[in-house]
Simulated scan of single mutants.
Amino acid sequence: MSALDDRIAELGLVIPEGSKPVAAYIPAVVSGSLVYTSGQLPMVGGVLPATGKVGAAVTPEDAKTLARTCVLNGLAAARSAIGSLDRITRVVKVVGFVASDPSFTGQPGVINGASELLGDIFGESGQHARSAVGVAVLPLDAPVEIEFVFEFA
């Protein structure tokens, strides 16, 4: 087990095995010293624990928890590309998409679930640039989808 795996375990979390793509793409691509993940849905055991729009079928609090799950899946994708999470030296960028009821404007609060967890895991090197975008619908009717850019050595 790596030092980062130990830190994740201390937080009571587990990095899952990488999810299989639901379309024609690969989970992560390495370019130079960066690993870019595809959009990560909050899948748990191959199933979405919730579906629908945030602010209607899904509460903002539940969506924030789902954003944390996206982090774990993103780390699994990164690990599949670079071999070990201990190679990650910085979280560079997070782009979060929130399937939103037309009246819902709390997308930043939802994506804070991901940002806060990355800070808990990586400390200062987990601070990142970020976008939080409301969208009409996401694949499989997921409430949240997040993509990540990690720097590694």
Rank of each mutant, 00 (worst) to 15 (best):
I26H: 10
A81S: 11
A99L: 07
A63R: 00
D141P: 02
L48I: 04
Q40T: 05
V71G: 09
P139C: 09
P102R: 03
V133N: 12
G18N: 12
R79Y: 11
E61H: 09
L140I: 10
G55N: 00
P21F: 07
G18P: 08
L85R: 05
F150L: 13
A153N: 14
G46S: 04
Y36V: 07
Q127I: 13
I111Q: 04
A76W: 03
F104W: 03
A56H: 08
I15R: 02
S103H: 06
L85V: 04
K64T: 14
G45H: 03
G113E: 02
D120L: 11
S84G: 09
A129T: 13
G123C: 01
F97L: 15
S31T: 10
R90S: 15
G39V: 07
A78M: 01
G55T: 00
V137P: 05
I26L: 13
F148L: 04
A28V: 00
A142K: 06
S84D: 13
I26A: 14
I82K: 07
I82G: 06
P108D: 07
S103A: 15
T65R: 14
D120I: 04
A63H: 01
A50V: 07
L13I: 10
P16W: 02
I146K: 06
S38F: 05
I26N: 11
G52K: 06
G96S: 06
G45L: 06
P21C: 08
D101Y: 08
H128I: 14
R90M: 14
S38R: 05
D120M: 09
V91L: 15
I121W: 08
V135H: 00
A136R: 10
I121P: 05
V91A: 15
G45V: 03
D86M: 07
L13E: 02
F104R: 06
D141N: 12
P42I: 09
T69W: 02
V135P: 03
V30I: 09
L140N: 14
F148S: 14
L117G: 10
P102S: 12
A81W: 04
V91Y: 10
L75M: 08
V98K: 08
K93V: 14
A50N: 02
P143L: 08
N73F: 09
L117N: 11
I15T: 02
A153Q: 11
V135A: 04
K64P: 06
E151H: 12
T51A: 09
H128F: 12
A78L: 00
V71F: 00
G134T: 01
V35G: 12
F104E: 03
S31P: 01
P108W: 01
F97M: 14
S100E: 06
V14G: 05
S80I: 06
H128M: 15
D141T: 04
L66P: 03
A132P: 03
R130E: 12
G12R: 06
I15F: 04
F150M: 06
N73S: 12
E124I: 11
G74D: 00
V135Y: 03
A76M: 08
A77I: 02
D120K: 15
F104C: 02
P27Y: 00
L41F: 00
L138N: 01
V92F: 13
V14A: 13
P16L: 07
T69H: 08
I26M: 10
